[in-house]
């Protein structure tokens, strides 16, 4: 496989291969010396057209632990402001002969566009509201670590589903397994019509009943201005996950959040800091999962000769 553009394009087998590889890398990360020489002499560029600290940091760490040379190309120093097209930016980067391009962009489909126009391996670090595949992979890895399986689980995803690439990638990933997927939130933030295997709930308690896994999504502050929700206060009142909700969940249910979280909006402090929360484990696992993805991708190679 040359690129990781989305979970949509992956089979269950390739997902499992990535997750198994991530397990091996997690073991490496537990050592005193956390670096492996695997990709020494290769170059990765983190091409971020949207501000991001945690995803970029996670990728950078993963790349460095694989001994890649790392370049960061972010919006502040990008040519976008000068009117350069994505295609031209990409061609410029290709002329540097990089092997891996990690891209985040505000347009859905941008990662696919980049992948189709370069020989480098492209990893989607979030494209618009389309996908954020490494997040879903690290989420799956984290669930596996705690639960030992994905099959047979009831997973509720709560919040701003329609604007969430994390929700989509998780949906596509979990659909490869025998899972029950639920979308929970205000009707304005849920798709009217998703896939057949998704159940839609407007009521938080119903949507979380007997859940094994609760995935929370960040509520963007600007949603209240565009009439998606009346206020963050009302959102917290109705859909914010608070400690009382624990009685509806399975006894060993876990709470997840891709970060950055808004305490007092989608999650209460008590829940965020509770023993059920595996939010920080997700962060750690992000590095191992991203190492696995980079490791498994095969750039087309071929030096760009100008």
């Amino acid at each position: 496989m040359k690129d990781l553009v989305g979970i949509k394009e992956l089979s269950r087998e390739s997902i499992e291969e990535i997750l198994n590889t991530a397990k091996a890398f997690k073991e490496v990360l537990g050592r005193d010396i956390k670096k492996v020489p695997t990709l020494r002499g290769k170059t990765a560029i983190n091409l971020f057209f949207e501000p991001s600290t945690r995803t970029r940091t996670s990728f950078e760490l993963a790349e460095k632990r694989l001994s890649l040379d790392v370049l960061n190309f972010s919006i502040s120093m990008s040519s976008v402001v000068k009117g350069e097209t994505l295609y031209d930016t990409l061609k410029t980067i290709e002329a540097y002969n990089v092997d891996y391009i990690v891209i985040r962009h505000s347009s859905s489909g941008a990662a696919k566009f980049v992948a189709e126009n370069t020989n480098a391996s492209v990893i989607n670090a979030g494209d618009g509201t389309n996908e954020h595949p490494t997040q879903a992979l690290l989420d799956a890895f984290s669930i596996l670590e705690v639960k030992g399986r994905l099959d047979g689980l009831k997973i509720s995803i709560v919040g701003d589903i329609i604007h969430s690439r994390v929700a989509r990638s998780n949906l596509y990933l979990l659909s490869n397994f025998d899972t029950e997927i639920r979308f929970v939130g205000p009707p304005t933030l849920l798709p009217e019509d998703a896939q057949a295997n998704v159940k839609i709930f407007y009521d938080l308690r119903e949507g979380l009943k007997d859940a094994d896994v609760v995935m929370l999504l960040r509520i963007q502050f600007e949603r209240q201005n565009a009439a998606f929700i009346p206020s963050l206060k009302e959102y917290f009142h109705v859909w914010g996950v608070k400690k009382e909700i624990f009685s509806y969940l399975k006894d060993d249910a876990i709470i997840m959040h891709p970060g950055p979280m808004n305490r007092g909006v989608e999650i209460s402090t008590e829940v965020a800091d509770s023993s059920r929360s595996i939010i920080l484990k997700q962060v750690t696992n992000g590095i191992a999962t991203r190492m696995a993805v980079i490791y498994l991708l095969k750039p087309k190679g071929g030096i760009v000769d100008l």
Binding site: S108, D127, G128, E131, R165, R168, Q195
Partner: peptide, 11 residues
């Protein structure tokens, strides 16, 4: 707008 726009992540 519909199933496909949701699937593609397009508005």
């Amino acid at each position: 707008e519909g199933k496909l726009s949701f699937y593609l992540g397009l508005k």
